[in-house]
Every structure is written in C-alpha cells, then in structure tokens.
Amino acid sequence: MSRLGLIDYGMGNLHSVQRAFERLGATVQTVQCGAEMEGCKALVLPGVGAFDPAMERLRQGGLAEAITTWCDAGRPLLGICLGLQLLFEASDEGEAEGLGLLKGRVRALPRRPGHPIPHMGWEPLVPANPSPLLPAGSPESWVYFVHSYAAEPSDPACSTALVRFADTAVTAAVWQGAIGACQFHPEKSGPHGEAILRRWLAWLAAL
C-alpha cells in the first residue's frame, strides 16, 4: 500500500483520519512542510475550524504553495470537511483567498426555520456526477456532517454528491482531475464512510 501524506497545519482531526486509513491498510505519515511530501503517493487535507485561520496557517508554513505545486502536477489529493472548502477560491466565512485549485466559492448554508446551523448529523448522499468516490450504481451512503458552509463549484460537473439541506441541495463531495474531497467526515461515518475511503485507495492503487 502506498504512503499517504496527512497534512498537519494544526487545524485537523488528524488522529481519527489517520486511524481510519490505517484500518484499511494504508501507511500514513504526517506532513508539515513541502519536503515531507517526498515519497508520498497522495495527500490528505483534513480540517476543522474556520477558513481564514486555516489559510493563514497553510501559507505561513509554505504548505499552501507546496499543495498547489502538487496538484498542478496532477498528483492525487483528498480533502475532508474544511479541507474541501480550502480547495476553492474564497469563502463567505472570511476574507482570505483559498487555494483556488477548484473554481467556485464556499457559501453560507441558507437560514430556514426548523433547520439549525451548523448542519449536524447523519444524512444520505444524493449522487451527482460519478467519480472514484461514488461510482455509478453505488449503494446509498449515509454519512456524518458538521458544517455551516458548503462549496458552490463554478462547474456543476465537479460535484459527485449532494446533500439536502432546508429547501435545497448543497455540495457534499467533489471530484476534478486527481482532486477529490468530502464535506462530510468519512472517518466518522461508519461502514459507509469506510467504503468511500476504500474506493479512493483502490483508485490510487490503480494509478
């Protein structure tokens, strides 16, 4: 199994993500600078917290530039939760520029009576464009969300899964090129989340 580089910038639930991948047989090493990406087959960008402090930490450590160089070279990356939002150009949550690896903006979830924010709990994914995370014909997946914002990709083909919230459907997972990301927490989503991570690892192994 190839080595995964788990990006550590002080704002991710690294332990649970690392444990989830290790249970599936992956070798995981934490990455705190660009040089530590050497020898990795793919990167995982987790994240818990707010957009601006996360981007500040990524830029301070030189990780933002290293991640951009990595993805510009067509190398694989998986974002999780805030790690998905950071891939986009900007967010309603703050003023900082995002990584801009995916075109679009992160929007605040709509405020509707009876739909508390943050959106928290288990929800079924609504399949969109097939991807290695959610191939066509995949069984229904119930996964765990905790978020107040959701990405709005410029290209709808980027969305591989949606989730219903209030009177609309928002982005739950994206895929473009070799970049995939989940707004939900696959590492906290039991067998369904494990199946999604297993598919991503199988896709990696076939590269």
Rank of each mutant, 00 (worst) to 15 (best):
E38K: 13
G39R: 12
C40N: 13
C40M: 07
C40T: 13
K41E: 15
A42L: 07
A42S: 13
L43G: 03
V44N: 02
L45N: 07
P46D: 00
G47L: 02
G47C: 08
G47A: 07
V48W: 04
G49N: 10
E56I: 03
R57V: 00
R59K: 12
Q60H: 13
L63W: 04
A66F: 01
I67K: 06
I67R: 04
I67E: 05
T68E: 10
D72Q: 14
G74E: 14
G74P: 01
R75Q: 14
P76M: 05
L77W: 00
G79R: 08
G79V: 09
I80V: 15
C81Y: 12
L82I: 09
L84N: 03
L84R: 04
Q85W: 03
L87W: 06
F88N: 11
E89P: 10
A90K: 14
S91L: 06
D92A: 13
E93T: 13
E95D: 11
E95R: 12
E95F: 03
L102T: 06
G104Q: 10
R107L: 14
L109W: 13
P110Q: 12
R111D: 11
R112D: 05
P113W: 07
P113Q: 14
I117Q: 05
I117S: 03
P118T: 12
M120F: 11
W122E: 12
P124Y: 06
L125N: 01
V126D: 01
P127V: 06
N129R: 09
N129C: 10
S131H: 10
L133Q: 09
L134K: 01
L134P: 01
P135R: 08
P135A: 05
A136Q: 15
P139M: 02
P139N: 01
E140H: 02
E140F: 01
F145I: 12
V146T: 11
S148N: 08
Y149W: 12
Y149M: 05
E152Q: 13
P153C: 08
D155P: 00
D155M: 02
P156N: 11
A157P: 00
S159D: 11
T160F: 00
